[in-house]
Design a protein around this nucleic acid. Structure first.
Lengths: 206, 206
DNA sequence: AAATTTTTTAATCATTTGATTAAAAAATTT
DNA sequence: AAATTTTTTAATCAAATGATTAAAAAATTT
């Protein structure tokens, strides 16, 4: 019989959280299993004891990261009771909040997908899910009705996502290159919760 | 006396080009010096003979990449004889062309700057150069005149850059997740040469 | 063409790194 | 509390990897 013994956290969780932190910050290739062990304050062998290998541990972290982001998105995207405009507001606000909590996640995903693009496709049928979403049905309807001028949903989606995510991707450059510190950056992102939906409306609207 | 003996290319250049290719694709940490040697078709020891170390070779590639991007930008940004609007058009068109030639460069830079943010600041005084550019003088003038509604130049610049660069960053996701192939992607980017300046005007204009 | 310098190669080193093992320690069951 | 199972540790392995060396080959100079 297995028992939950969450005196603080279990060893397994400590390792997973340490791995997440280090992988997010440095990526798979630059991460040493010893970095993770040290971060978690455990013996190196425990990592392999609980997770078999660095690769396996990494895949777990990556799938949880992708899964978390996508699941949250789909809930909003498939809400039958909100307008397109409301969905945009929700997506923007939610993603800015989620990524503010874990600012390294976009670069982490982008970097790792570069090395292994099949990661995205092999496990999740993104395309079908997106195309059949309420969101894109509403988008097509808006295009047909003439209230959205740019007909290509790819441009629409890239712009929406880019205006939200790109600032986090260049955050290190902004912080190093301009004199922007963390709280200043976060304030800018909070501003964008209101700004991005307005901008999108201005851009894509007729 | 040194002689140019460009029978095709010199060994040194072969190594540098191979290094560029491999570093761009896989990043510093995931690149093995043996990968570079193989790509260049040379003996491994030659890499160290010509460039001392992997690290030195990498820094050379990175500085050339950054330098190329920034130098091209500054020329446009500081042209006294073009309007703000014309500058935006030029920046968008130029960057889309340059990055289309070398689509991996944005993710390369973003990934590596994450691991070493001081790379950006230590060698190039980005901040001063940007703030004193004709471009931002014109931007401030446009804000003062009321023809641009969003006063914060950071938002302005992030949006401009993001609308251009972000698609390339998520290109692997688009190609894997959606059924977009290379020529389709490039066509979309060519479309954006016209679209982005219009969008920017709609977004940021009053 | 002999001498010298530059370039290239094969072999090897020393470290790093992911992973395993055998034994100790702790927890759980009987 | 003895036996068993689970968790943790220290030591070590084998492969990968950045770098060096000494010698060979090629090019250049004298």
């Amino acid at each position: 019989m297995k028992e939950k013994k969450s005196l603080d956290t279990t060893t397994e969780d400590k390792i997973k959280e340490a791995a997440r932190k280090v992988f997010y910050r440095k990526g798979f290739a630059a991460t040493r299993t010893r970095d993770i062990a040290e971060e978690a304050g455990i013996n190196l062998a425990l990592l392999n004891y609980y997770f078999r290998s660095k690769q396996k541990l990494f895949e777990l972290i990556m799938m949880e990261a992708l899964g978390g982001l996508i699941k949250g998105l789909l809930v909003v995207l498939n809400d039958e009771h909100t307008t397109l405009e409301e969905k945009i507001q929700k997506i923007v606000a939610r993603y800015i909040d989620v990524i503010t909590e874990e600012p390294e996640i976009p670069t982490f995903i982008v970097s790792e997908v570069r090395n292994n693009p099949r990661m995205m496709t092999d496990r999740l049928p993104i395309r079908e899910v997106l195309d059949n979403s309420v969101f894109f049905r509403q988008h097509r309807a808006a295009v047909a009705a003439g209230s959205i001028s740019e007909p290509n949903p790819i441009h629409f989606f890239i712009n929406l996502l880019g205006l939200v995510v790109f600032p986090f991707i260049v955050k290190p450059i902004l912080m190093a290159g301009r004199g922007i510190d963390n709280s200043e950056f976060n304030q800018l992102m909070q501003e964008r919760k209101k700004l991005v939906p307005v901008w999108i409306k201005m851009m894509m609207g007729s």
